[in-house]
Design a protein around this nucleic acid. Structure first.
Lengths: 130, 130
DNA sequence: ATGCGTGCAAACGATTTGCAGAGAA
DNA sequence: TTCTCTGCAAATCGTTTGCACGCAT
């Protein structure tokens, strides 16, 4: 077992691109952005990086139509949910004051909570009604 | 005029299976349940049915890891959530105490909320830890 | 008889993985 | 040098679609 983590140009590029991206982006989108910006990175590497970041809690992900969407996470390790615009796909973070009652309700049923899903969908102000 | 809607055994089977399923299920899962229950239905048909139901608003869907998840749409007004055991599939109803914060947060972002989804997964006391 | 619904299998898009070589330590 | 990371391409997974036949109407 080695706790080795190497510093590479691709990692930097992916993380920077993710941070600079507006809102949530798909892996493919990020890949295109990188290529367009002169920092070509293999698509597989983009996926590997994003998965690693997501797993470490350094990136947020929301499942969207046609694939997962990623976004740089400013507060690592903090679980939160999202408010997603059904039209433009943009998403905002939500504070979730509901964690407590979930645990309570679970305990009441002698449950051990492993995970939960909360997604709020709507229409943002900038989007045409249709 | 093509207002034609035919009544078939497969449609019935899919809808019944969806209604009997605990919480959200994937298309593949539903397909297996049907096969296991003696009502074998083609996977493509399952997808076609689920998509049709979702489009008509007769089923709810949430994007999940590894695919979309479907659930029979409950009658309007009886909106509630579930606590689902990942092992035995049993589900309990959860009262959603305060969903006002959702609307508040949405308003804060100038969002119009159209719908939201919450599912809690875990282990019930009767099921082995693994 | 008419034509929608089904099943099968091929097609499809998103993501993962095997493997050999490049590059950081 | 050692060993992780990368890139490519093939493999995989979930989902959709084309086509011919069956069955509800």
């Amino acid at each position: 077992m080695t706790g080795d983590e190497r510093r590479t140009a691709q990692k930097e590029a992916v993380r920077r691109a993710l941070r600079q991206a507006p809102g949530f982006v798909s892996a493919g989108e990020l890949h295109e952005r990188l290529a367009a910006g002169g920092n070509a990175v293999g698509l597989a590497t983009v996926y590997r990086q994003l998965n690693a970041l997501a797993e470490d809690g350094r990136a947020d992900t929301i499942p969207g139509p046609g694939g997962r969407l990623f976004r740089a996470c400013e507060a690592p390790g903090v679980h939160h949910h999202h408010l997603v615009c059904e039209a433009c796909g943009r998403a905002f973070e939500l504070d979730a004051p509901d964690e407590a009652w979930i645990r309570d309700a679970a305990t009441e049923h002698r449950f051990t909570v492993t995970r939960h899903v909360l997604e709020v969908f709507g229409r943002c102000a900038d989007c045409p009604t249709y």
